[in-house]
Each structure stands twice: as structure tokens, then as C-alpha cells.
């Protein structure tokens, strides 16, 4: 009988549809939310430090990271009239708490997941607008901002995959299955494209490092 079981399993290697377990989504939201909250916290503290001390830069550098102090003084750093990191400071902890609840075994209603999805859509849209501004309008990179870009892309991908998987968002099952089968390749490709854009944009500087 055991042999039959094993045979059946062998004949249908992909018998189980691919799925994201609650532990995977739970840990992703917890870790992502915590990293995002930490980055937002550091950015807020830096913003306060910057306000109290405009600071002295001995030289203007072609290193896009060294000239990042200038990013926080731009209009793009306060799109809604207050410093952007305050948004992350308020929202990332909610994401982390959601993840922790899932790990603890809580199962959340559809409206909760759709709210999380709405937040993820806003967040991922916002960081892409910011990264466009950073690359092509301001011409400088800010490391903690980039941490938030990475976190948002990962959180958006997994929240969306989860919602597709559990039917909170409507989509053809085949498409969902295909996406689930390559779940970590999605943010990987996404981030590599972003990395390539950064590489090209600041090539003049990277070249000096070779």
C-alpha cells in the first residue's frame, strides 16, 4: 500500500498546485515590515539631524551616494507636505504586525488583505516615482531610500501573489500558478532591472571604481 502511495506521488510529481504557505507570507511580511520600518526610522532621524545642522560638504562628489544629503533637501522628499519617511514609519509596523499574526496562526479576512494590497500598490508606485526622481531628476542615490525600494518591491510581489493564490484578487488560475512557480524570480528580475538602470545612470562614477 505504501508502494502504491509512493507510485501515485511519483506519477503526479506536480500533483499539488503551487501555493504560498502562510509561514512564507508571514515571515516575508514580518521581516520586510521590520526592515522598512527601520529604514524609515533612520531616514526620519537623519532628516531631523539635517534640519538642525545644514552641514558642511567639503567637496561636491561624483559619487552619487556621497551627494545624497542633497536628496533630503529636495521638494521630492516632502511630496505631501511632510517628510516622506513618516509614511513608512506609520505603515511598515502594521505590515510587520500582520506578518507576526500570520506566523502565530491568525487567519485574516479578505478586507484586511485587500487593504494590505492597496497599501502595497501605493507603496510600490510611490517608490518607483521616487526612484525615477532620484535617478533622472536629482541625480543622487540615498542608501536607506534604496532599502525601502527593495523592501517595497518584495512586499508588493508577495502580498499580490498571496492574494491571487487565495482568491482575494481575481485572476486566471493558470496565470497565478505560473507566477507562484517562479515567485522569487519576480522580485529578482525586477530588482536587477533597477540595478541595471542605476548602473547605466551613474556609469561615469562606477567606471572610476574599476
Amino acid at each position: 500500500m505504501t508502494a502504491t502511495l509512493a507510485d501515485t506521488a511519483a506519477k503526479h510529481p506536480a500533483g499539488d498546485p503551487p501555493t504560498l504557505g502562510y509561514r512564507v507570507i508571514g515571515w516575508t511580511l514580518t521581516v520586510g515590515g521590520l526592515i522598512g520600518a527601520l529604514a524609515a526610522f533612520v531616514l526620519t532621524v537623519e532628516k531631523i539631524a539635517l534640519l538642525s545642522d545644514p552641514g558642511y560638504t567639503p567637496t561636491c562628489s561624483i559619487n552619487p551616494i556621497l551627494s545624497c544629503g542633497s536628496i533630503m533637501t529636495t521638494g521630492q522628499a516632502e511630496v505631501f507636505g511632510f517628510p516622506n519617511p513618516l509614511i513608512g514609519l506609520a505603515t511598515f509596523p502594521v505590515v510587520a504586525a500582520t506578518g507576526a499574526a500570520l506566523i502565530a496562526g491568525a487567519r485574516l479576512p479578505r478586507w484586511w488583505w485587500l487593504t494590505l494590497q492597496a497599501g502595497a500598490v501605493f507603496g510600490v508606485g510611490f517608490v518607483h516615482w521616487l526612484s525615477f526622481q532620484s535617478l533622472y531628476r536629482i541625480g543622487a542615490l540615498c542608501p536607506y531610500c534604496m532599502v525601502v525600494w527593495v523592501v517595497m518591491i518584495v512586499l508588493f510581489t508577495y502580498t499580490t501573489l498571496h492574494n491571487l493564490d487565495r482568491g482575494h484578487l481575481p485572476a486566471p488560475r493558470r496565470l497565478t500558478n505560473t507566477l507562484l512557480q517562479v515567485h522569487s524570480a519576480i522580485p529578482t528580475v525586477w530588482l536587477l532591472i533597477l540595478t541595471a538602470l542605476i548602473g547605466v545612470r551613474f556609469w561615469d562614477y562606477w567606471r572610476t571604481l574599476l
Partner: peptide, 24 residues
């Protein structure tokens, strides 16, 4: 044979993702 089957399942399901990601 059961262990073999398990490994086979792991390979086809889990590692499609891993393979694609690492490949990229």
C-alpha cells in the same frame, strides 16, 4: 522508493522557482 519520490516532488515543485531565480 518513497524517499526517491519525495525528492522528485521537491525537485519539480520547489526547484523550478529556485532554478529560475538562480539562473537569472
Amino acid at each position: 522508493s518513497a524517499a526517491k519520490a519525495t525528492r522528485k516532488i521537491r525537485k519539480t515543485g520547489m526547484s523550478t522557482n529556485l532554478k529560475v531565480t538562480l539562473g537569472v
